[in-house]
Structure formats: C-alpha cells, structure tokens
Amino acid sequence: MQRTTIKAWFLIHKWTSLICTAFLLLLCLTGLPLIFAEEIDHLSEPHVEHPQDTAPARNLDDQVNTALAQYPGNVPLFIGWDWEGHTVYVNTGERVDTPPPQMKTALLHASSGDVVPAPQFNEGVMYFLLRLHTDLFVGLPGLLFMGAMGLLFAVAIISGLVLYGPFMRRQRFGTLRTGRSRRLAWLDLHNVIGVVTLGWALVVGLTGAINTIAKPLETAWQSQQLGEFAARYAGQPRPTTLASLDAAVATARAAEPGMRPAFVSFPGTGYSGDHHYGVFMQGNTPLTERMYRPVLIDAVTGELTARPQLPVYMTVLLLSQPLHFGNYGGLPLKILWAILDLLTILVLISGLYLWFKRGSTEARVTEIERAEKTGGAA
C-alpha cells in the first residue's frame, strides 16, 4: 500500500478503536453473564411440579382473571408460554401502552392455574445488566448510541485487518516475539487474538447494532403492515368487552397447524392494533422458534382477520437477537461465546496498552510500511 493509504487506514483504526473501546469493554463485561441469562434465570426460578404432563391446559381467560386479581386496576397486555408449556405468564399494566419497565407479571401453572412465586422480569441483577448492556438506562437514545459503537467496532476490526493482514502472512501464525520488547509482544498478542476472534467479533458487533434498532423497526412494521388492517376500524373506539382469548388462540392454532403460540398481544399494545388479538405463532425447533407468524383475531367477534407475513427486516431482527448471545446451539455454543468474549476483552485491553505506549503517527506508519515490505516488526 502507498504511505498515504497506510496512514489513512491507521488513523481510521486508531480513532474508531479509541472511541468505542470503553463502551465495548462495558458491553463485553455485561454481556458475559447475559450469555447465560437463561441458565441463571432457571436457577432463580421456583420449582414447579408437573406430575401430569398430559393434564389439560386451564382456560386462558381464567388465567388472565387470576393475574388481574393479583394486580387490581391493571389491564392485560400480553400472555405467553414457556418453551415446555408448563407455565403461563401474564403481563399487566395500568394502561394499554405501559412500557416494559413498568409492567407487572404473574406466573401461573398452565394446568392448575396456581400462582407460581417468581421475580419480576424487570427487576434484579440480570435486568440491571441487560439495561446497562442495551441502552444505558436512557431508552432509545442509549440504544442508538450503543448501535453506533457496534458499527465503529466493526470498522475498527476491518481496518485492523487491512493494516496487519499482509504483515501477519509473513510470520508463522501465533508468533509472539517476546525477546525484543514488551510493546512488541503486546502488539503480536493483540494481532493474533484479534484474528482469532475476527469472525465472531464482526457477527456479534453487527447483530448488536441491528438489535439496537429493534424499536424503530417494530414501529415501522406496526405503522405499515398493521396500519393496513387498523384502517378498516377507523373511527371505532377500542373495544372494552373482548371475545374469548381461549377461543382466539384455538382459532390461531387451527390457522397455523404446524406452529405453536408463543405469546398473545392484547388490543392497544401496539403489536396488533386497537381491535385485534395478535396471536404470535412460532416454530417447533431452536431455529424456527424465532420465526414468528402473527395471526390477527378480531377482539370483538373472535374471527380470523389476517395472517400477515413479517417483512424481511423483521425476520433479520428476530434471527439476529439470539445469535448475538449464542442462543442457537445450547450450552456448548454459549461456552464458546463466553470464551470469545473473554478473548475480545483481552484484545481491547491490549489495544489500550499499545495506545498508551504509542509513538508518533508518522513513526507508526513507517513501522507498518516497513513490516509490510520486510515482514519485520510493526
């Protein structure tokens, strides 16, 4: 490469890395326990007896009434099932547009309807770490800011590969030149681990950036696709007396026999308009369980209104969310994700060390140029 090109790539790598490193360290440190969020939550969940796996499920309308009895004055927002189908959760709030941090959740046995003591999903250490990891407790601005940091991280990775790729091809992979200087050894360590984690870091960085725009994408989907059905009810008030939820879910099951219900949104929550139950069906495998298919049921008549296809951007979002935390391959993949997360932390720390031990920009560019030509130290 020409000297001006090397200098340009060096400055890109330097400043993108410096700007995002502190936040990337925060993301890696908070992301480590979040990789095992399901396992940690399972340890804190109360034991639920399941003596009869074939026992009939309790009527869903009765489940909702039980949940509302726990939180008088609230309205139902969502109802959903765990993967095994042993428990049902009901999210409630003071109004239909209650934000998630203010929701209350009742966990009920799917067959008996007994209330299962369980912590709220929006409380505790794991919720604190999740909010810190995703939006820094400032909502959408924090989400978008963290997404920008993820994109800068991707640029830093690519620019680092451009700078050090030719140099590393001239040495045996994994070489650490410890006998010349501490800084040189740290540089080799930074480069080698950076290459090892390259693919993973790009995937996690880009999926993290995609996840940060989840709310704008959901809003776009609601206004575009759901707005088409909502237009048919223009001028009509939101119904106060709703059709049977249990019958609505049965209708959705019949409409999508190869799928299972994941959750149901009540009218007014934004996921199904003001006049429909939104029964969100999912597949039966670890991959297809993220491929939701909404079934809209008229909340007054109980009749099937539509089965809209999710747009491509929503499908990409739904698939990227579990990939970000390694939720596709069970515990072995999560352990691999955790190891790569720790290695990325080492890359970030070594990058900070190299910056503190830096020389002038011109001197660094000269070293990189020499290394590219001769395979010497950069």
Rank of each mutant, 00 (worst) to 15 (best):
M1C: 05
R3E: 14
T4P: 00
K7W: 00
I12D: 01
H13L: 12
T16D: 00
A22C: 14
F36K: 04
I40K: 00
H42W: 12
L43V: 11
S44R: 09
E45I: 02
E45S: 12
H47K: 13
E49P: 06
H50F: 07
H50P: 06
P51N: 11
Q52V: 12
A57E: 10
L60E: 08
D61R: 03
D62H: 03
D62A: 15
Y71E: 05
G73S: 05
N74F: 05
I79M: 07
E84N: 10
H86S: 04
H86D: 08
T92A: 10
V96Q: 10
Q102M: 14
M103V: 13
K104L: 15
A106D: 00
A110R: 13
S111R: 04
S112Q: 11
G113D: 04
V115Q: 02
A118R: 14
P119R: 08
N122K: 13
Y127F: 15
Y127C: 06
L130S: 13
R131D: 08
R131K: 13
D135P: 07
V138F: 00
G139E: 13
L140F: 12
L143F: 01
F145G: 02
A148E: 02
M149S: 05
A156E: 03
L161N: 06
V162N: 07
G165S: 08
P166C: 09
F167E: 09
F167D: 01
F173V: 03
R177Y: 10
R183C: 04
W186I: 14
W186Q: 03
V195K: 07
L198Q: 10
E218K: 14
Q222K: 15
G227Y: 02
R238Y: 01
A243N: 01
A247R: 12
A252Q: 04
R253A: 08
A255T: 06
P257K: 10
M259D: 04
R260D: 05
P261H: 07
F266C: 05
P267K: 04
H276S: 12
G278L: 07
G278R: 02
G283Y: 03
L287N: 03
L287P: 02
L296H: 05
T301W: 01
P308N: 08
Q309A: 15
P311I: 04
L317V: 10
Q321L: 15
P322Y: 15
L333R: 00
K334P: 11
I335D: 10
W337V: 00
L343Q: 09
T344G: 13
I345D: 02
S350W: 03
S360M: 13
S360C: 12
E362Y: 00
E367W: 09
I368L: 09
E369S: 15
E372G: 15
E372Y: 04
K373P: 00
A377V: 01
